[in-house]
Amino acid sequence: MHELSLTHDMLAIAIKQGERYKAKKILSLKLKIGALTMLDPECFKFYFEQFSKDTIAEGALLVFEKVDIQIECKSCGITSNVKDFMMLCPLCYSPNVKLLSGQEILLEDIEVDL
């Protein structure tokens, strides 16, 4: 359900940026969502439709890019993608790992009509 407040904040950021460029309309928003956040794109789309009514972003397309969870093992030096959230090196099983990606909730860019 926190997709509700995230959608609200995302829309505010996009509109502010669009207005700065004097955009007539926002056509699309590109989002990068890390797998660790477990956010649901369908939820975003549903709330966005409601929130964006009567704004320059009404009708805009939401484009999602999923970012895999990537860790770097400090013991063996290998970088791996993990699918099950486990913060263990899949090669040497060391718990001494650094998270490289997977936590993103990023509005990357917007496409606008000027």
Binding site: Y21, I105, L106, E108
Partner: peptide, 11 residues
């Protein structure tokens, strides 16, 4: 026109 935003939504 493409406008880069690169903003964390939680910022």
């Amino acid at each position: 026109m493409n406008i880069p935003v690169l903003t964390d939504i939680l910022s």
